[in-house]
Amino acid sequence: MTSIGTGYDLSNSIFSPDGRNFQVEYAMKAVENGGTSIGIRCKDGVVLAVEKIITSKLLKPGANKRIATVDRHLGVVSSGMLPDGRHFVDRARDEARSWRDNFKTPITTADLASRMGNYLQAHTLYQSVRPFGITAIVGGFDAQEESPVDGEVGNGPSCGAGGKNPDKKYGGPFLYMIEPSGLYWGYYGAATGKGRQAAKAELEKLDLTGEGITLEEAVKEAARIIYVAHDDSKDKEFELEMSWISGKDGPTKGLHQEVPKALREEAERLAKKSLDDSDDEEEEKKDGDKMEE
């Protein structure tokens, strides 16, 4: 059944006779036109990456960041309508801040995903607003060790907080993806945007659920996947932006940070190399070295 012409798709929060909300489905169309974003949850951290299509030569290279920090340990990347992505980030920062105000401790990744899921869902309920034209990937590393309460000035009790099970593991890396409908799931590897199908296929090949891969491997895989998902017949050049989050003892010390330039360039070099190699296998006569920076 087509949605067009029925009248059920003309405003938000309207069900069609077969129980669909077309405006939400159309919002997802906006997502499908955006540059590919992916997230990888690995053993010791989370990696976020995005393919930034260069729409104009006049854009300042490297200046327009698409991955945002929400709290020190939380990062967000989204595909779809960029201004909606900014709105999402603004709201996420407000949520993280109000959580800190209330509980004097950083928000966990799961709680942030829940809050933001609710927020997006609320935008499907009313005719007075439209759904978000983005799918967002939220990555975070929740502290595994006992950390001080915000504003704590003394040494606190010499023993840890009560009610904790010593055998239970607390915190760790987490990854969620939130859709325009407000639906969200936790993921080991998440992909959205134009190249999501190819990216998903590549993510499924990684061993993320079992033994897991290391953060550094994940950075390299993320770069490779963005290169694989990029369709250079359709789109012009793109910039790769990547960020990562490790635990306290890892390279980012529990913070969400941009992947250092040297590592990113190394990952890009390997990504291009592996693309060239696979091209060679497919068409052995041609050397595909068209790839430039």
């Binding site: 405003s11 938000n12 077309f22």
Partner: peptide, 17 residues
């Protein structure tokens, strides 16, 4: 075009006219 009357309606292509 029914999708261009306000800024809260997506077109089937996901555009906001």
């Amino acid at each position: 075009n029914n999708y261009d009357n306000d800024s809260v309606t997506f077109s089937p292509q996901g555009r906001i006219f």
